[in-house]
């Protein structure tokens, strides 16, 4: 087979796969979102955005992402730096830290529900310590802050490891000589982190952030388990349109809005963390 044709033949299977299972459904969803059954229209988008719950769920989703993602970045950086400095036991610690990755998001939500629930660990502990005299219903409309905190904690616990894994790999790619040079030329450990690790980690940070931010906009099961309807988010509303209201056109429109937001943030992250030409390791 000629060398010109071979590359195309080799990418053919994956292209077919992507067309069949991603592009085709995507076109179907788009068709649904932009039609009312007979003609092209923006009615579905008007319907979902004018609903009273839309601004709240949008705000909640963005707020959650804005709080959770920066904390995850900071934690993942800290943990990745610690892991990279370890000699013995490094793999063991890394495995333990990545255990939450293996747990489904719904299960993670339920684990944290078991903590925050009226008969949960937190209540029994506080009761046992005499802080409270009867169990509190923490995850109720009277404590919106606690609901938010519980969701944020569960998300941080569950999904920081995905960033950690990417950052550990990224740190491993930075040659030791750069740190030695920085040290000889007078950079303190903190300055070495700021001036060497962070900038050279940009490609990995980019990947980790894109992945994490997209997942943050798709948050669903953890919220469903801990907040129920108390804390509406975009993905939860999409689910409600599809399965409670049986309005798949509106659900499709919601899905496209989430996609739009994800693409927007991805482009911003790629732009902000871009590596100038000739400046990569």
């Amino acid at each position: 087979m000629s060398a010109r044709v071979l590359p195309y033949v080799l990418i053919l299977p994956v292209t077919l796969f992507l067309c069949l299972f991603f592009l085709y459904p995507f076109i179907l969803v788009s068709q649904q979102a932009f039609s009312n059954g007979s003609e092209l229209t923006l009615d579905n988008f008007r319907e979902v955005t004018s609903h009273w719950k839309f601004p709240i769920s949008m705000k909640n989703t963005l707020l959650l992402a804005a709080v959770v993602v920066p904390i995850q970045v900071a934690l993942a950086l800290l943990m990745a730096t610690m892991v990279s400095k370890m000699g013995k036991g490094r793999d063991l610690v890394l495995y333990i830290w990545t255990i939450p990755l293996g747990i489904s998001d719904l299960a993670a939500g339920i684990i944290w529900l078991a903590i925050f629930d009226q008969s949960g660990f937190l209540n029994s502990m506080m009761h046992g310590l005499g802080v409270i005299d009867k169990p509190l219903n923490l995850l109720s409309y009277q404590h919106p802050g606690v609901v938010f905190l519980a969701i944020a904690l569960a998300e941080i616990w569950r999904a920081t490891a995905i960033m950690l894994v990417i950052l550990v790999a990224g740190i491993g790619l930075i040659p030791k000589e750069y740190y030695e040079a920085a040290e000889v030329f007078g950079a303190s450990p903190w300055k070495r982190f700021l001036r060497i690790t962070l900038p050279l980690l940009r490609p990995s940070l980019q990947t980790a952030l894109v992945l994490r931010v997209i997942l943050a906009f798709e948050i669903f099961a953890v919220v469903a388990a801990l907040g129920g309807t108390l804390f509406p988010v975009l993905m939860g509303e999409t689910y409600a349109y599809q399965f409670d209201l049986l309005n798949s056109r509106a659900a499709a429109a919601m899905a496209l809005i989430i996609l739009g937001i994800s693409i927007g943030f991805t482009l911003i992250i790629l732009r902000v963390l871009r590596v100038p030409k000739g400046a990569s390791i």
Binding site: P175, E177, Y178, E180, A181, E183, V184, I281
Partner: peptide, 20 residues
């Protein structure tokens, strides 16, 4: 620490920072 020794160093693989 190295910075207080009044030394400077040239490394085998240069260690020229790629991001600067």
């Amino acid at each position: 620490s190295p910075k207080d020794r009044g030394i400077a160093m040239v490394f085998q693989n240069y260690a020229v920072f790629p991001h600067l």
